[in-house]
Structure formats: structure tokens, C-alpha cells
Amino acid sequence: MQNAAISIQNVSKTYATGLTALKAVNLDISPGEIFALLGPNGAGKTTLISIICGTVTKSSGTVSVAGHDNEGDFRAARSLIGLVPQELHLSIFESVWDTCAFSRMLFGKPRDDAYLEKVLRQLSLWDKRDSRIMALSGGMKRRVLIAKALAHEPRILFLDEPTAGVDVELRQDMWRIVRELRESGVTIILTTHYIEEAEDLADRVGVISKGELILVEEKKALMRKMGQKQLTLELTTPLAKLPKALAALGLTLAKEGRELVYAYDMQKPQHTIAEVLQAVTDAKVKFGDLHTEQSSLEDIFMGLVKQ
């Protein structure tokens, strides 16, 4: 893609230990999107991020950031990127303000106290600006890592498991920050274990398993395409045997005859809900309640990774 924020072509990585972490990965990230990279532990998520950011050397392939090769033109490429690592890597003796000012300078940007103040306020760190990092809680340290990554006004932000080990309140705060950043035009790539996070935030989802990118899809399309819906009827009197007419429609008995279940594809259901209910009424089966369930991204994900 010509104007991709990030273009990854045929990137492979084999570590010195012989472990192959990535196998010929191809991926384009569009400017301004939130892309969620899902995968189990050890799938290669962090390796892929590290290669783009320059902390791990790739074995083959090319990576370009807004058209700049990330090795040949590393200055231009890296200037655009902010990286929030998975681990809380911070120099604990420094103050919040100093460490953020350091990050900005390291990236070659002139001092801008007003901007730094804005970032610290956005992350609720302003009151802690003079605190030493060792005095902060784990959640606060994670905010500091984000502030450091934002200190040089990056156009692309990488969040490697931003909400691992973070309490509910902070997680929601993170999501709010991510949305705000996207509104300001920042492209965001996040890796996560929490499927709900991807489901809630992402525009597109990539699933990585055993070093291979096995799926990249618009989240909505993915949910539509792979989403299964299920209708459950709770029967007033349990059925010993499923009437033939209902079995023909694809219904099944569950919970020792106390439930009738109909699983269908949302895109092209073989029978409408009305048809199914009519058939149930015709068979003189009485039900007290009914509900439908839609498979979540988590179910889809588990299904994919297990294959």
C-alpha cells in the first residue's frame, strides 16, 4: 500500500536459539486506525512490534513506516513511532517530569513544557510530576510509560499489552485515552490478551498464532462473517425425545430435555426465527422463556487458534 502508516512485507524472524518467532508476515496498517493484534502467549506479537520499532532485528523482509524503511531511513521511521513496552521498564530514581522530558529530547524534539503538561494532565499524572517513579503504583508506572511514548508527539503508537495487570478503572481510563488519541489522528496498534479490549476498541483485528498471521479482518465483518447466533427455548415440561419435525429443522435438545437449541448463521439463516417458533408451536411443545446468544470475538478467536 502506497500511503500505509506501516507496511510489513515478508517479515520473518528466527532467534539465535533457533526459535522461529515469525514466518513471512505481511500486513498493512492504515493511517488513523486502531489495529488489535491478538494471539496467545508466545505467538509472536511482541516480536512483530519490536521489529517495527527497531528493538529486535528481523531475519528477512522489509518494514516501512509512512514510506520510510525502518532500517535504511531509521531516523524518519522511528521519529513517527511511540512505543509502550509490556514490562514496566523505567528508571526508578527519576521524577515523572524528568523522565518524560528525557524521552522527548532523546527523540530530538525541542523542549515544550506546555505540550508535556497537556500529556501529563491527560494521563492524570500532573499531580505526580515531581514524584520519583519508585514511589508510584504499578498502574501509575504504566501511565508514565504511555506519557514517555507520547512525549515526542508520535503519529503511530504501539501499546504492547497496555492493560495487563491493570485494575478495571485504569483499564477504562486507558480505553478512553486510546480513543482520544485516535481522534487526534494517531494510528494505534495494540496487542492484547483481552478479547473484549479488541472488541471494544479496534477497527481491525489481526490474529497471530505460531508466528503466522492467520487472519486480518475488519472487526465488524469478522463478527458478522464468523458470528454464530443461537436461540435457546426453555421448556416448561422436559422432552424425552425430539419431535421429528423439529429435528428436521436442525433443532437439538439440551440440558436433559429442558432446553431446545437452534444454532444459525446470522448472514443466511436456513429458517427464520418465526418459522422455528411456528414449528415448535405446531409440535405442541410449550416453552416458558427464550433468549438468543451471539458468539463473541473471544469464541471466534479460540476457534481459530485451536485449528
Binding site: 522511528r78 521498564h89 524521552s103
Partner: peptide, 16 residues
């Protein structure tokens, strides 16, 4: 920085 992990920042910065 290698020991504490903060080296990541130097490596990902536009610093040769």
C-alpha cells in the same frame, strides 16, 4: 539500562 530494560527506549529512538 540493559539490566533494567530501559534500553528499549534508546533502541527505539532515532539515535544512531
Amino acid at each position: 539500562p540493559r539490566f533494567s530494560g530501559t534500553i528499549y527506549e534508546y533502541l527505539s529512538a532515532p539515535v544512531s
